[in-house]
């Protein structure tokens, strides 16, 4: 599942159309749109809103250890030197308020140019040197990396203004058009993230037999972790076949079942 966080409806519209998303909720403080493998939330402007929306999306489900999500922030941004319409992935995000820096990690050649992004608290007329300027990325990234590793969290900015084309000229319709024009890049980034999320999902999928045994005994969270670990070991040793041979049939509770499984690994 790819979780996409955008600030404004006008930025979300092209994504909703391209990825064929349906409106899932509008009444709980955020507007959420759902698709087969992508879920989008409209956060509102600012890093606090972006952080809150990111946490809200995580709480909605679709993340968690069983199905780790990748995260993408999409939006328009200003830039001192880049031309309007250029798509850029953040390779460094600096929260202008705190000075704290974050570093998204690329595990393949990026789908487009990359840049530093400075997240500011209020619109500014000046631009930071050689960096994009937005109002959401730091809040998004700091929150999303609580739920996923930095390889699976990225921020994609389409340049909407620069000293020659000031932000005061930017209308919602223009923002929509800018995102729409770079949907090819958005799709490539989403595809890269989907591949990573798929790999992560396969790596963290519960081992065969886990659900069945966990259902059979009432296990605590710690015991579930132990079960997952010992089952991975059982399968690593190619002894999964012995699980069906009555190994845990006589066990009265989860602790006894875990002991039986752990003895299988020790033998």
């Amino acid at each position: 599942m790819i979780h996409v966080v955008v600030a404004l409806d006008c930025e979300a519209r092209p994504l909703i159309d391209r990825f064929d998303l349906r409106t899932a909720s509008i009444d709980d403080g955020f507007r959420v749109h759902d698709g087969e493998s992508l879920r989008l939330i409209v956060s509102g402007v600012g890093k606090v809103s972006s952080a809150a929306a990111t946490a809200y999306l995580q709480a909605l489900g679709g993340g968690g250890a069983a199905a780790p999500a990748a995260w993408l922030n999409v939006g328009v941004a200003g830039h001192a030197r880049a031309e309007v319409g250029v798509a850029m992935l953040a390779h460094r995000i600096v929260d202008a308020g705190s000075g704290r820096a974050f570093y998204p990690v690329f595990t393949s050649t990026p789908a487009c140019e990359t840049t530093s992004v400075h997240t500011v608290d209020a619109p500014r007329r000046d631009y930071p040197a050689d960096a994009a300027c937005d109002m959401e990325a730091s809040g998004f990234f700091a929150t999303a990396t609580r739920f996923a590793t930095a390889e699976m969290v990225h921020s994609l900015k389409v340049i909407s203004d620069n000293p020659a084309t000031p932000a005061s000229d930017l209308s919602p319709r223009r923002a929509t058009a800018l995102i729409e024009d770079r949907l090819d890049v958005v799709e490539r980034v989403v595809a890269d993230l989907a591949e990573l999320a798929g790999d992560a999902r396969r790596a963290s999928a519960p081992p065969p037999g886990f659900e069945e045994i966990a259902r059979r005994f009432r296990l605590s969270l710690t015991q579930r972790r132990r079960l997952e670990r010992v089952l991975r070991r059982v399968h690593a040793l190619d002894r999964g076949g012995e699980l069906g041979e009555g190994l845990i049939d006589g066990c009265r509770d989860g602790a006894a079942a875990l002991r039986a499984l752990e003895s299988l690994v020790r033998d």
């Binding site: 996923a148 590793t149 390889e151």
Partner: peptide
């Protein structure tokens, strides 16, 4: 919040 295996790809 870093994954050694994913980073090892590049």
């Amino acid at each position: 919040a870093q994954n050694f295996r994913l980073q090892k790809r590049r």
